[in-house]
């Protein structure tokens, strides 16, 4: 089973209002439980998607570890972080369109924003390909080193 399918499954469980769903396919087994009204959130703080063997464990373990969190599977989203301290700009000048907005497909090497520091202007390239899911910083706001800027669903 692929991550994409698991994500679909979690979405399905949360929308169907059922409390538990178990699926077995050959030697692959997954159980998704909802606790009270909150659907289970598979939440991984790691940037990389978990490797397949980890998923063979029942998902209940994840259910206990995960706090009551927003209804979205964020396990496979990748964060684009700021490589430096500076000011975040979504476009090259006030009258130009944004480099990247929610829903845009970006390719590795595509410029997603500018970070200015001490009048040096830095075009930040995405290192991954995927879809922008969330823009985490407002235009013209200061950013710190390593601060998350965008959430990207990898292609």
């Amino acid at each position: 089973m692929e991550l994409k399918e698991i994500r679909e499954l979690i979405k399905f469980v949360s929308q169907a209002g059922v409390s538990e769903v178990g699926i077995e396919q050959g030697d692959f087994k997954i159980t998704i439980k909802t606790t009270s009204d909150q659907p289970v959130v598979v939440h991984s703080p790691m940037v990389q998607a978990p490797s397949a063997p980890a998923l063979t464990a029942p998902a209940t373990a994840a259910a206990h570890a995960a706090p009551a969190a927003p209804v979205e599977a964020v396990s496979n989203l990748i964060t684009i972080k700021s490589p430096m301290i500076g000011t975040f700009y979504r476009s090259s000048s006030p009258d130009k369109p944004s480099f990247a907005s929610v829903g845009d497909e970006v390719k590795a090497g595509k410029v997603v924003c500018i970070i200015e520091a001490m009048k040096l202007f830095n075009e930040i390239e995405s290192e991954i390909s995927g879809k922008i899911v969330k823009v985490l910083v407002e235009n013209a706001q200061p950013v710190e080193y390593d601060q998350p800027l965008f959430l990207v669903e990898p292609a």
């Binding site: 970070i115 830095n122 930040i124 390239e125």
Partner: peptide
């Protein structure tokens, strides 16, 4: 500061530095 060139109180040269960053490197 940070990068205007002056002679006395008058500006003689301006600069615009545009970097492209890939990860933590200046490509």
């Amino acid at each position: 500061w940070p990068n205007d060139m002056m002679v006395g109180n008058e500006k003689i040269c301006g600069m615009l530095i545009q970097n492209t960053l890939s990860g933590e490197n200046i490509s």
